[in-house]
Amino acid sequence: MDLEVQGRIKELAESLGRNNLVVLLGAPNVDSSLIQFETVTRGDPTYSGPLTGVELGLDTYHVFEPAMKAMIGGEKYDELLGTLELALEGDTIVEALEGARR
């Protein structure tokens, strides 16, 4: 996750409160989804950005996860994201995030 985005998320978490913030990921593969998840929950795993050593523990979902899908609504989701989810093997991303939460 680039340093500017990390800084912005840190600022928002401080000004709005961690409990009032949800991070929605749209990364196109397992690796980048996991790095982004890690960064906004347990801290920057690359030890290079403002979130190094900062455990924000923010609620974080990928847009392909069932909870988000339900929020967007089936028909709208299929129209906007259904094909992308298939192409990017969304199920592997969802599975990886479920593993990372454990």
Partner: peptide, 10 residues
């Protein structure tokens, strides 16, 4: 091709 395959399936 990944995207095309998904488009063809959809």
């Amino acid at each position: 091709y990944k995207m095309l395959a998904a488009v063809l399936v959809s």
